[in-house]
Design a protein around this nucleic acid. Structure first.
Lengths: 204, 204
DNA sequence: TGACTTTGCGAACGATCGTTCTATTAAGTG
DNA sequence: CACTTAATAGAACGATCGTTCGCAAAGTCA
């Protein structure tokens, strides 16, 4: 690995932390340069533009997410254990030291949801992938006989996705110490419902 | 109403829209002044500082939320109808024209979750109030006999809160046309579970 | 109408932003 | 070691940021 790649990696690590706290738009070339003991232009040269820096940060985050959440979970046994592992790993993800401001995808989502461009496209793609991973894990659990056969796996993926965001908000904004137990309870309800015989869900 | 209050209200309306799209930090005095056909300093004088402007925007948003979501729902019959009304009204809230960038509380939550200060305090208070309103509506539904007596109303409030955020993300970031139906399905599952006899939620 | 207060404008400030250029130093290679 | 390339520094750019100040215009009320 050449020296350029090494400093680039160092910069990206700091940028990831910064983006987690101040958002992708809040990233400051000057601020990063100061923290990296570099000149603005020297740091800038590694990316060519702020947009490229943001894209690089997103790519770095995706890489780490796959490495820390998805890949380990895929080593768990197919079915409910793997599905549970995805949940557990996500809880850990939200507390990683390299994103002290919380899940960077969540921060980016709110920032980019009405700002078209490559960054938004990449983020949307990553979130679609994540929802697909969840739905796929649920589908496998159906195949393994752990979950009921008429389960709507995409719906389950959505509800787990939503619950994770609720947890994040309760933990990071409200500083509620019950955040994790709330999330766990909700998750058990999800899994329990996925296992049980279907019951009619009707409006009154 | 004096002229000052009138222009201040006009400014706040635009600021609310801007904050919904670019966030509270993304608010620009100069940009707002241009859109309001005013000078920067003239607009600035109405608030005294950017922090005060942000606080005013938050206060305005809270006022509208109470007016558009909570107050109408409180006119519905106590119990499940009122609880459902809170859900329906929230769906409408997320699509209000005056916040074209989506729910401003969600945007502010991600921005402020690790930035201590009056703005954060006010946001946290508003979200606590909202969770309390939800939990209280559920408690009333228990008293009315609509929901089961051993229901954890705070847990239900959390899960509805989380589901709303999931909906928002699916609708605004992913542009998924199934967002609303996903949210409705999840909500029906919540209500159904709140009504049914309790079942054990256990890990395997 | 007159006196008085509120409201708004215009110019300027220092700071920071992303970006560009040129020059210099360091690293990699034969 | 010399030579090429990659990496970084430094200075400057125009733009925009939030904020301050003094003064003119408009609104308010007797």
């Amino acid at each position: 690995m050449g020296k350029g790649e090494k400093t680039r990696a160092t910069i990206l690590q700091m940028a990831l932390a910064d983006a987690s706290e101040r958002g992708l738009e809040g990233l400051s070339i000057g601020g990063l340069a100061e923290r990296a003991h570099m000149s603005k232009s020297g740091l800038f040269a590694h990316f060519g533009s702020k947009d490229e820096l943001q894209l690089a940060v997103l790519a770095e985050a995706v890489e780490r997410f796959v490495e820390l959440v998805i890949a380990p979970a895929l080593k768990e046994p197919r079915g409910e254990p793997r599905f549970r592992a995805l949940f557990e790993r996500w809880l850990l993800w939200a507390r990683q030291d390299f994103q002290p401001g919380g899940c960077i995808f969540l921060a980016a989502a709110v920032e980019l949801d009405d700002r078209p461009g490559p960054a938004r496209d990449r983020l949307v793609a990553s979130q679609r992938d994540w929802l697909d991973v969840l739905a796929n894990a649920a589908r496998i659990a159906v195949e393994e006989g752990h979950f009921r056969r008429d389960l709507d796996v995409a719906q389950l993926a959505f509800e787990m996705y939503a619950m994770a965001q609720g947890f994040h908000q309760l933990e990071r904004l409200m500083r509620d110490p019950r955040a994790e137990s709330r999330a766990r309870t909700a998750f058990e309800r999800l899994v329990c419902d996925a296992r049980a015989k279907p019951r009619a869900h009707r409006a009154p």
